[in-house]
Design a protein around this nucleic acid. Structure first.
Length: 480
DNA sequence: ATGTGC
């Protein structure tokens, strides 16, 4: 395969010109250093493959945390015309509505630190983790169909958290247009006992504190202050969303010939947005989105319980308010200005975060003066970031930015690097208490397995597609 | 990511 050509647009943006069957150019947000690494990677080729898809609008975009994924790269953004365009399960990912919630307490690091060990133990007990984790609650299939339509609203009605959480979740925690009949019985069976569970891989629940503030006004509006204890919940739709993705990949693979779609990579299986297959996937994916909203709402509730128990306080004293919750594996129909024209397009964000600007009607009224909060988790040992969306993101990236650190070591390589070490003890020596369902996951998730998220965030900040607000540092973590 | 793998 010929080497890809990267043409510099500016210091943090590179374009792969349209060639061959590409319908649009590909664009990658990266520093010189990140770009050098990407030249050795298959992920930019995946961004080029996406540029071949019918009805793609403007660019196939890649964020600085781009890495290899199923069909589409993780860290990719692509928008499609509603008439001519396609929808693809691989453009959303296996973990539909994998996302991040940030909770902010009323407590400082000094108040929580003496109880940290006990707190992490209690969190580990109240939030099931690991592959196949189950048991936070079990619902009937009929009830799970309601979850699939109502999302976090279902969870609030069942007594998990409160109404006030809902305004601070993307889509208010309930994606419209979900059709429970578009989801297989197998997906319902897998999901029944997985609500309120974390899962495995890079999913985690992290206790941290506000270590640094970059934007005083935005931090004030978000209610963040130095030393404040925070919680990040990073998980998705578990086996329920996985099964939806798997089911529709097979359906769309079979339908490719019917719609005369030719692909550079079969993993890009897709269907016209207007086709029955496309519409059914959209309706099923929205069920997966709602499952994940409910999942994180239940985990947030159990986190509040765990803090109250560990610290011997009332929940109101702990005050774990939802700052915001973002989705980072999702496809949504949104309105964007493209070449001066207002158009509705289907935006696929796979390992990318919505980053809407100040004044946008789809962000909470309380935050409208500053822009949408963007939550960027890092690795277990370093830091995570809070950013805000910008007008420039709206103009350049369909209102999108990065989503995380991105792996730099394969799981196999990470395990090799970690072998013989005591990763949990190393982290404890740095003041971070970690509990995992398996030693294997902790080894695979060592901090060195990830790129420095600060570098990824800096690219987005410098490029102007989001702005830094605060850095959070971890003190406790539970992992699958 | 995933009742991890064909």
């Amino acid at each position: 395969m010929a080497a890809l050509r990267f043409v510099k647009v500016h210091d943090y943006l590179w374009e792969i010109p349209k060639a061959g069957g590409m319908r649009v150019p590909a664009r990658i947000y990266a520093s010189e250093r990140i770009l050098r690494e990407l030249k050795e990677d298959q992920a930019p080729q995946q961004a080029v493959n996406v540029a071949h898809l019918p009805g793609i609008v403007k660019y196939s975009l890649a964020m600085p945390d781009i890495h290899w994924g199923y069909g589409f790269p993780i860290g990719g953004v692509a928008a499609f015309d509603l008439e001519e365009g396609v929808i693809s399960p691989g453009g959303v990912g296996y973990d539909i509505n994998c996302g991040v919630r940030l909770l902010a307490s009323r407590l400082t690091y000094e108040e929580v630190a003496p109880h940290l060990e006990r707190l992490v133990d209690i969190l580990f007990r109240r939030v099931p983790t690991g592959v196949g984790a189950a048991g936070a609650l079990k619902v009937s299939r009929q009830e799970l169909r309601r979850v699939a339509v109502e999302g976090a609203h279902w969870a609030v009605r069942q007594g998990f958290g409160s109404e006030t959480d809902l305004a601070f979740i993307e889509e208010s925690g309930r994606m419209e247009g979900a059709d429970p009949d578009a989801v297989s019985e197998r997906a319902y069976e897998r999901g029944r006992d997985q609500l309120g569970t974390l899962g495995s891989g890079n999913h985690f629940l992290e206790v941290g504190y506000v270590a640094q503030i970059f934007d005083d006004e935005a931090a004030r509006v978000l209610g963040l202050f130095p030393g404040q204890v925070t919680v990040i919940i990073h998980t998705g739709s578990r086996g329920f969303g996985y099964q939806i993705c798997d089911d529709y990949l097979a359906i769309m693979d079979r339908a490719l010939a019917k719609y005369h779609i030719r692909l550079p990579d079969r993993q890009l299986a897709c269907a016209p947005l207007r086709s029955p297959e496309g519409q059914q996937y959209l309706a099923a994916m929205r069920c997966g989105i709602n499952f994940a909203f409910a999942n994180r709402q239940i985990i947030a509730h159990n986190t509040r319980k765990a803090f109250a128990e560990a610290l011997g306080m009332r929940e109101e004293e702990v005050g774990l308010r939802t700052v915001y919750e973002v989705a980072h594996n999702i496809a949504k129909i949104e309105e964007h200005t493209i070449d001066g024209e207002q158009r509705r397009v289907c935006v696929h964000r796979k390992g990318a975060t919505r980053a809407f600007p100040p004044g946008h009607p789809q962000i909470p009224a309380a935050y409208r003066s500053i822009g949408q909060p963007v939550l960027i988790p890092g690795d277990m040992g370093r830091y995570s970031y809070v950013l805000i969306g910008t007008e420039q993101a709206m103009q350049e990236t369909f209102g999108s930015t990065c989503h995380g650190a991105g792996r730099q070591l394969s799981r196999r390589k990470a395990k090799k690097v970690a072998s013989g070490r005591r990763v949990a003890d190393e982290l404890r020596a740095q003041g971070i208490i970690v509990r995992g369902a398996s030693l294997r996951t902790i080894n695979e998730e060592i901090p060195e397995a990830y790129k420095d998220v600060a570098e990824v965030v800096e690219v987005c900040h410098q490029a102007g597609i989001s702005r830094k607000v605060a850095q959070l540092r971890p003190i406790g973590c539970i992992k699958g």
